[in-house]
């Protein structure tokens, strides 16, 4: 019996981006999974969001686009190269901001220091209208809420297990996700996911039928746009720099001391790289131009 085709999971950016574990295939041709903080094994995903930026970090002949697609809860990072023919033919024709649907495979990167990053290898991208985005928000909210409720119940159980969770009315797959999440991530603050779903549904309701850019921003708590830390990060990089540049490791340490969030640091450094304020002469080394 052939393996069933991998389902395209509906996952919000906040859930996907906070993934810190993966299930790497040991057999040949077996799929890799990112295990989300709600315990969902994700190999392929489908999401809808706004194309915020696209930059070709490669060359004319062998392009490598890095694109950001924003959903109501966060940003998906996409890498598109020659092995993604359909996205490569479509992406250059699109100008931000455009509402997009993306079907893609998970992509992971683990730094030397063990920190773990996820992004997307798109298989296909296509334009989407507001009602379709809202249908995506609704089905993604429903599927996320199933997992979330099971995990909320699991977190307060003495001995969380699939059977008792199913007795409480959860689907088998939600119960399995919850048990999985608890063993990998321990007890988490789940309020952020609940708020994210609320914010997303709010956008579907308030922005219903209107073009996205005129829609009100997501309600507070869903995805607060943090104050700009660009200048702070740039100063810190300069402070850690020797003649060759600053070690990535040192920058992270300094930012940790200053209380700057790792994910935000990552985003900011990428922005600075994109605009050419800094560059990466070798991996792990950052230099201000």
């Amino acid at each position: 019996m052939a393996r069933n085709r991998e389902v395209a999971k509906r996952v919000f950016a906040i859930e996907y981006n906070r993934s810190a574990h993966e299930d790497k295939a040991t057999e040949e041709n077996a799929p890799n999974y990112v295990i989300s903080p709600l315990g969902d094994p994700v190999n392929r995903l489908y999401f809808v969001g706004v194309l915020m930026s696209k930059v070709n970090n490669g060359s004319e002949e062998s392009p490598l686009y890095r694109a950001e697609v924003r959903d109501p809860t966060g940003t998906f990072y996409l890498y598109v190269g020659q092995y993604q023919p359909q996205p490569l033919s479509v992406l250059p024709t699109l100008e931000p901001p455009t509402l997009l649907g993306v079907v893609g495979k998970v992509r992971t990167f683990t730094k030397d220091d063990g920190s773990f990053y996820v992004s997307i290898k798109p298989e296909v991208i296509f334009p989407v209208d507001i009602p379709q985005r809202d249908r995506w928000i609704v089905s993604t909210s429903r599927l996320t809420l199933e997992k979330l409720k099971a995990l909320e119940d699991a977190q307060v159980m003495n001995e969380p297990a699939v059977g008792p969770l199913m007795d409480k009315g959860h689907l088998r797959r939600s119960a399995e996700s919850a048990v999985n999440a608890l063993s990998l991530y321990g007890k988490q603050d789940l309020m952020q996911f609940r708020e994210a779903i609320r914010g997303a549904l709010g956008l579907a309701i308030e922005g219903g039928g209107r073009p996205l850019l005129e829609a009100p921003p997501p309600p507070k708590g869903a995805s607060p746009r943090p104050p700009d830390i660009r200048d702070d990060v740039l100063r810190l990089i300069k402070e850690c720099s020797s003649e060759k540049g600053a070690l990535y490791r040192d920058i992270i340490t300094r930012c940790d001391q200053k209380g700057i969030d790792r994910i935000r640091l990552e985003e900011t450094i990428q922005e600075l790289l994109d605009e050419g304020t800094i560059y990466e002469p070798t991996i792990g080394l950052i230099k201000v131009i």
Binding site: R142, L145, I197, I205, G208
Partner: peptide, 17 residues
């Protein structure tokens, strides 16, 4: 085509939450 009204569904889900 799926012409389900996501607005109604979203309102229902939000109120349940």
């Amino acid at each position: 085509d799926d012409i389900t009204d996501p607005l109604e569904e979203a309102k229902k889900m939000l109120s349940l939450m």
